[in-house]
Structures are given as structure tokens and as C-alpha cells.
Design a protein around this nucleic acid. Structure first.
Lengths: 315, 315
DNA sequence: TTGTATGCGTTATCAA
DNA sequence: TTGATAACGCATACAA
């Protein structure tokens, strides 16, 4: 591994000049040329540990997500990568499996490695960002808003998403619409349920709270929710499902029971999911969410010190 | 961000002693205790850029995969993480989307960042590992064997996998079995097709090469392959499918044509995929593959300098 | 066992 | 514009 000194020696210049060429500071054309060819001949790769130490941050952006198998997060990842790469940063993915301890670990590593910044899709509202925040490192939360900390946040309009999904079912004649959503206290879950409520109310329909089922945003939870609904003979003629992973479970429960029900699902469907014909998917702008988060992060990395800002994308 | 000097000052010891406490070298119990509490009070996080510079490598392991949406690779990722974390390394995921240029980029970054090592699931046999190899950095290839380079390789027994899948169909009475596999020259694709051939031959059945369809391991490819087979009226009564992502497409093509065919699929099925009843899935030990690769990598990181070794896991 | 001093490879400051 | 040099924070060789 050649160092900057070896390149300098071979080009007959000082290490400082090599550094300047590599970093785009003004250098005479002939010197720059000599440096470039010396670097090429030696197959010189700058040592980023040294650079990070000196500059106080690396060129890595951590993207911390709770579930690598959820297509929403993989789409989001693409958005982050698109804009980060454009700006010369590399994105590394950290999968927490919804585990707060693992999330903490990764955030700690990102801090210790002096990564340029972090885009975090929090595993929970109780996610602990204190380390990064205390150190003043760039971080933006996406999808969910963490409590306790004031950081930049990029979310979608969950209420609108819930409303649109519900309206689509109403438009098809549904009157008693169940709402299968995530845990209480989770803003994505609560917002979508609120949209369901709003759509029903606006349509002059009763928003029967007993038709709101709280689940866990996972496949098994979706299945159990629908099974419970069927078991207690709830008089539903359609259902809004707050994310696509749960929709898979819901569809299975229905099929298992030999039933069929118009479904409106918030989010893109997983690859391979054979959706029933009466299922409406309302895509979420996952990629755009990631891109926006990354853009905000880049602003922070470039030194923006404005107060934390909250951005809500239309559904 | 506190430094080792501040911790040392507060504990009334030298920086070297702090370093020793943190790294587990022998230090008197009382000093160690003082250091630990000083570190805690200052919320000291060692600067890994500095450590990496000094030690010549970081505590990050890069896992470079071609398709983050393929459940095989996410399972593999879990295996890598399990053993890497156990050993104190953090795993960062790099998704290349089957793009050799992006793969190269990530490998370059891993080298420049002086990451401890790389587990690579190559996007192609033509993957360029020259940078890492030339620098003598630890790297192990998994799933596919890259040409051109001699590195540690961990794969599954693809031939056995293909054979088992085919045998399962033969056992159910199938006689003319199609084989939908990946591109020629890709060892996973070729091996599985070879297993298909072997099983048929062993069963005294003809291995009709016109029933081998070369596709791309992706959903669309699976669909097109089956559509082509149906379109030309190939006399098949079952099919072996070399990976689970293609199986989704195949199942759709069949359903679209109003047909049904016993299917044997190599690999775990994607979440949400509603497999037809006559589909047999033959799981691949993806997680174990990742774990083995990580173990081999750890040996390299600890200084093993034996010649490159090749490990083939049973299917 | 502990401390001192040095160097890892860069970038930035300062002089020239 | 260019070069000499210090400093980033840590781990270790060496001395005590």
C-alpha cells in the first residue's frame, strides 16, 4: 500500500502537493500531471483512516434500518444511495432486526468510526440517539419520529395515506371497514388509523373503534389480526392494512378461512406476493423518502446548523 | 468527544494505561477501575479512525451482496453477522444490484477504509478482486467462485442441490422434467443443471438438453422461461427451478396460462410468496454459508496465511 | 506493571 | 503556487 510520501517522492514534489492534487486545490498543471501519473503507477489508494482522523469524519454514511426484508426499507435504501453516491459518499447498511440494542450498537459504531452521518429508520420511538446528538454528529430520522430527541425528521403523510386507502374502499361500496395497523404510540400506525377515521367520518360513516386492530407491522401479526376479526364475527366488508408485510398475513388468513374481502394496503407489495384481485395497493414514496433524508443529511454534513426541521412528504 | 488523554488525566494515569485497560492488557485492578469510571464519566468513545490508522485495520467487515431483495442473501447476511458480532466486528452491508462497477466501488472503499475484511458474494465470475488481493487484505468469496483470483471460497454443493430437487420430482412420478437455471458459465447455475442431468441419468431417464432453459436468476427471467417452455409446447410434466426468485415468476407464468406443474425449487421461498401446493422447496443453508464464510474470514484476519481454501457445504 | 515517546498517513497552517 | 511541519487520537516499543 503506497503512501502519500511515496507518491510525492516519485513525482518529485512534497506530500502536501500530492494532497492538494487529490483534493482539488490549486496546483500547477505540470506538477498535477506528474502527481497523477505517479499515483497511478503506484496504484495509490489514500488511507481513509488517516484522512478521517485528520478531517474528523469519514466518507461513509450509515443507513440503519429495522428490517432488511421489508421492501419499504430496501426502496428507501435505494433513495439514500442515489443521492449519497452522487455526493461522493458511500452508504453502508446496518440491519437491526427491530432490536434496540443492536440499533444502539450500530449508532455507537457510526459515532466511533466518525462516519460522516447517519440516516436512521428508528426501530422504535424509544430509539436512543443520545450519543450522536450529544456529539453533534449529523443524523436524520426517517419514516418514524423518535421521541426524546430533536433531530431532522423526514416522514410521509401517514394520515393522508390512511385516508386515501379508506376512501378507495368506500368508493367501491364498502361501509364497515376494518383497520389493521401497528402498535399504539407508533406514529406511522397511529397516523394511518387516524386517516381511516377521518375518511369514514368525512363520508358520513361511523368510525367503529372496535374495528381497529393493533398489530406489529409483521406478517404473523397481520395474519393473527385478520383471524381474530373473523373469529369474533366482526361485521366487516373491507379492510385497510397499514403496511404491506402485514397484508401478506392478512391475505393468508382470509384464504385459510375461505373468505375474501376487499383490501387496501398502504405501501408497495413484497416481491412474489400474489395479491388477491380485490386488493388495492397504495404505494408510499419510499425511495423519495430516502432521497430526501439523504439530502437533508448532506446539508448537515456541509455544516448547516439550523434548528432541526421536519419534512412530511405527501403519500 | 473526549480523547484518551482526557480520560488519562481524569484517572490520574498515563494514556498508555488507559489504552491497556481498554484493550485488555494487564493493569492493576485499582488503576483499571479508576480508568473505567473516568471513561464512563466522560462518556469516552475511542476514536476508531485513530485506532484503525495505528492498527492498520478497522473493526468493520464489509458484506458485499448483489441483491438485497433476494432472501438467500439476507439469510446469508444473518449468518455473517452472527459470527462477526460474536468476535467483536461490525458488519456493514453493501448492495451492488448486480452491477460490477458498484461492486468495484465498494471493494475499493473497503480497501481504502482499511476494513478488517470482506465477505463477497460476487455479482459475477468476473468480479474484480485485484485491489484487495494485491494488498493482501482478508477476503472470502461466498456462493460463487470468482475466476481470475485465488481467494478463499465457500459454496454449497450445487450439483447435489440440483440432484435432490430433480429426484424429488422423479419420486413423485415426473418423467420429463424441465430445468430452469441461471446463465451459462455461472457455477451455481451450471452445477444445479448438472445435478438435474445426473439425477435423470441415474434414474434411467433421458436428460433432454432442450428442456434446460437458461435465465437470469430473477423473477422476470423465471416467468419468461416458463412462458417460452409453454409457448413451444414442450412436453414437460415438472420443472426444477434453480433459485427461489425465479420460482415466483415461473408460478405466475403457470397461473397466467391456467396451467399447473409440479415444481421443485432450490432455496427458501421469498416472504409472501404463496407457493402452489405442488411446489417443493429445497432450502439452501444460506445462513450457515454466511457463518462459514465469516469464520474463514476471521481466521484470515487473525493472520492465517495458508493458501486459499475452498469449502463446499452440503445442500 | 506503568509511563514516555514515537509513528501510523493525512490535511492544514504557516512561511517562503 | 509550493514546501516544511505540526497535529489528528491511538497503540506500542522501550525504559523505568
Amino acid at each position: 500500500m503506497a503512501t502519500i510520501y511515496e507518491v510525492a517522492a516519485r513525482a518529485g514534489v512534497s506530500p502536501a502537493t500530492v494532497s492538494r492534487v487529490l483534493n482539488g486545490t490549486a496546483v500547477a498543471a505540470d506538477l498535477a500531471e506528474r502527481v497523477r501519473s505517479a499515483a497511478a503507477e503506484l496504484d495509490y489508494t489514500p488511507n481513509r483512516s488517516a484522512r478521517s482522523l485528520r478531517r474528523a469524519h469519514s466518507e461513509l454514511i450509515a443507513l440503519v434500518i429495522p428490517d432488511i426484508e421489508n421492501p419499504f426499507f430496501t426502496a428507501l435504501a435505494r433513495g439514500v444511495e442515489d443521492v449519497a453516491r452522487e455526493a461522493g459518499f458511500s452508504v453502508v447498511l446496518c440491519n437491526t432486526d427491530d432490536d434496540l440494542a443492536r440499533e444502539s450498537d450500530y449508532l455507537r459504531v457510526a459515532l466511533a468510526e466518525r462516519m460522516a452521518g447517519v440516516v436512521l429508520a428508528p426501530a422504535s420511538e424509544r430509539s436512543d440517539l443520545s450519543g450522536l446528538v450529544a456529539a453533534g454528529r449529523p443524523i436524520v430520522a426517517v419514516d418514524r419520529a423518535p421521541h426524546e430527541h430533536s433531530v431532522d425528521i423526514v416522514t410521509v403523510d401517514n394520515v393522508a395515506a390512511g385516508r386515501h386507502a379508506t376512501e378507495a374502499l368506500i368508493a367501491r361500496g364498502a361501509r364497515r371497514i376494518a383497520c389493521i395497523t401497528g402498535p399504539a404510540g407508533v406514529d406511522t400506525a397511529d397516523g394511518r388509523a387516524e386517516g381511516w377515521r377521518a375518511a369514514l367520518t368525512e363520508a358520513g360513516l361511523p368510525a367503529d373503534e372496535s374495528l381497529v386492530v393493533r398489530s406489529d407491522f409483521r406478517q404473523g401479526g397481520g395474519r393473527e389480526s385478520m383471524e381474530a376479526l373473523l373469529a369474533r364475527g366482526a361485521p366487516v366488508d373491507a379492510a385497510v392494512i397499514a403496511n404491506s408485510v402485514m397484508a401478506v398475513g392478512v391475505a393468508r388468513a382470509l384464504r385459510g378461512a375461505g373468505r375474501s374481502l376487499p383490501l387496501a394496503v398502504i405501501g408497495d407489495l413484497p416481491i412474489g406476493f400474489d395479491a388477491p384481485d380485490d386488493l388495492i395497493a397504495l404505494p408510499l414514496p419510499a425511495r423519495e423518502l430516502g432521497a430526501s433524508a439523504a439530502r437533508r443529511l448532506l446539508e448537515r454534513i456541509s455544516g448547516d446548523v439550523e434548528p432541526a426541521r421536519s419534512l412530511v412528504l405527501p403519500a
